[in-house]
C-alpha cells in the first residue's frame, strides 16, 4: 500500500500488523504474569515484569504508530525532559506520600484502613472470653437483647 511512492517511508501494512500482533501478545504476557502463581508469589517480581512489558508496548506504539522511529532528533527534546519531569514528580512524592504510614501516630492508626487480622493468638480456644460466657445474665445490657417477641430464626 502506501509504502511506495508516498512521502512516508515509515510504516507499511506489514509493520503495522506485526506491531499489532506484538502488542496483543505482550498484553497476553501481562495477563499470564498476573495469573501466574510462581511469578506473583513475590508480587514485586510480577509487578516489575508487567511494568516492563507495558514499557515495551508503549515503546512499540511510540516508535511505530506515532512514527517517532522515523523522526528527527527533535523527538528527544520533547520526550526526554518530559519523562524526566514526570519521574521527578513521582520520586518527589515518595518520602511523604509514599512513606506516609511511617509517620502515623497511634491515634492516626486507629482511623487507618484496617487489614485483615490474623487469627488472634490470645483468644481462648472457645473463642469466647470468660467474662462474657459465664457472667450472670443480670449483667447483660439490654442493648444486645432483641425484642422479646422476635422469633428465633
Amino acid at each position: 500500500m502506501a509504502t511506495s511512492a508516498q512521502s512516508s517511508p515509515h510504516g507499511s501494512l506489514k509493520t503495522y500488523l506485526s506491531v499489532f500482533i506484538a502488542l496483543c501478545v505482550l498484553t497476553g504476557i501481562s495477563f499470564a504474569v498476573a495469573n501466574s502463581q510462581a511469578l506473583m508469589a513475590n508480587p514485586s517480581v510480577g509487578w516489575s515484569l508487567m511494568m516492563a512489558v507495558s514499557a515495551g508496548k508503549a515503546l512499540l506504539v511510540v516508535l511505530f504508530f506515532m512514527h517517532l522511529k522515523y523522526e528527527a532528533n527533535w523527538k528527544y527534546v520533547l520526550t526526554i525532559p518530559t519523562l524526566g519531569m514526570a519521574a521527578f514528580l513521582v520520586i518527589a512524592l515518595g518520602p511523604d506520600i509514599g512513606a506516609r504510614t511511617a509517620q502515623y501516630s497511634e491515634e492516626r492508626w486507629l482511623q487507618a484502613a484496617q487489614p485483615l487480622g490474623e487469627p488472634a493468638p490470645e483468644l481462648a480456644p472457645s473463642g469466647m472470653p470468660a467474662a462474657t460466657a459465664t457472667e450472670p445474665p443480670a449483667n447483660v445490657p439490654t442493648a444486645n437483647v432483641p425484642p422479646a417477641d422476635t422469633p428465633a430464626p
Partner: peptide
Amino acid sequence: EGEVATSTNDAYRRD
C-alpha cells in the same frame, strides 16, 4: 454491638 459493648476481649470484639 451488645457483645462489643460488654466484652473486654479485644480479639473477640474485633473478630
